[in-house]
Design a protein around this nucleic acid. Sequence first.
DNA 1: CCGAAATAGTCAGTGCCCTGATTAATCAGC
DNA 2: GCTGATTAATCAGGGCACTGACTATTTCGG
Lengths: 154, 154
Amino acid sequence: MAAVDLTTHPGHLARRLQQAHYLLWNTMVSEEITSPQFAVLNALVAEPGLDQRTVGERVGLDRSTIAEVISRLGRRGLLGKVRDPRDGRRFLLRLTDEGLRTHRKLTVRTARMNQVFLAPLSADEQALFFELIRRVADAAEGLRNPAEPLVAQR
Amino acid sequence: MAAVDLTTHPGHLARRLQQAHYLLWNTMVSEEITSPQFAVLNALVAEPGLDQRTVGERVGLDRSTIAEVISRLGRRGLLGKVRDPRDGRRFLLRLTDEGLRTHRKLTVRTARMNQVFLAPLSADEQALFFELIRRVADAAEGLRNPAEPLVAQR
DNA sequence: CCGAAATAGTCAGTGCCCTGATTAATCAGC
DNA sequence: GCTGATTAATCAGGGCACTGACTATTTCGG
């Protein structure tokens, strides 16, 4: 009888939070485009011509996952990739008109969804919610990336 | 240039939080047993003899996902399933000795990991962190399950 | 200039997560 | 008792997420 209370386990809560979000996204935003796909579109609206790896870095996806997501977006005709003439290893990514249109449309719906999702919290609590999660996630990421030395003297 | 700031999007934060947790779990708890698998073991420590669907309900996994997780735990010999003699549709699940041992071992490591994961927050903030996430997740789940009427008069 | 190290991307493999369709067993109303 | 609805589990299919191994290209040291 040494069972544990999962509601005090941050990993379990994080998973439940993400599932809840997934569901709501599906009903309120899009059944075609997923939240990670929207994140990629958004990164390319902010910085057109990024390469694949950098997009992954911006949205927090590893090289394998970002490759799949981009391939799906490419198949849907939302973005195009061209070899970087200055570095033959890279592909440069750019949204198509269709991709831009999709991003615009989803931006509106996403804002609505976020309001519904966060409705149980007051404005102050929402700010706290963001801050606490960000601090925990940032710290954990820092544990993995061995904290780029401020004076990089490799 | 209508790009959005993803750090104010709860879904994006939830995903990053979960990824950070996944990484830490892998290095501090186990490379074999995942966090959802531990949740299932834990549910069966608390309530031995549950059927598959109910376990899924306890830990927040749908029927398809719980089937996969249980099949993996079965392959590893951590649990056994028997047909319910009183209801031939159900399988009753029970941990093996090996399963109990694994749960005990991981419980200790999980506690350590949670401490490290939550270290950036003070005790008060940790309590807030749990409460805010739980409120948002519960509310979103409530949106889907049409809120079982208190006086069920179907 | 040339070989070694680093970097971008792909591929194979594992696991989580959902939906919709199907199968088998049980239950409820007539 | 039988038929129809419900329920537990499985299966097919799509997408996200990671690791480790591999290929191709670039860059750096000598």
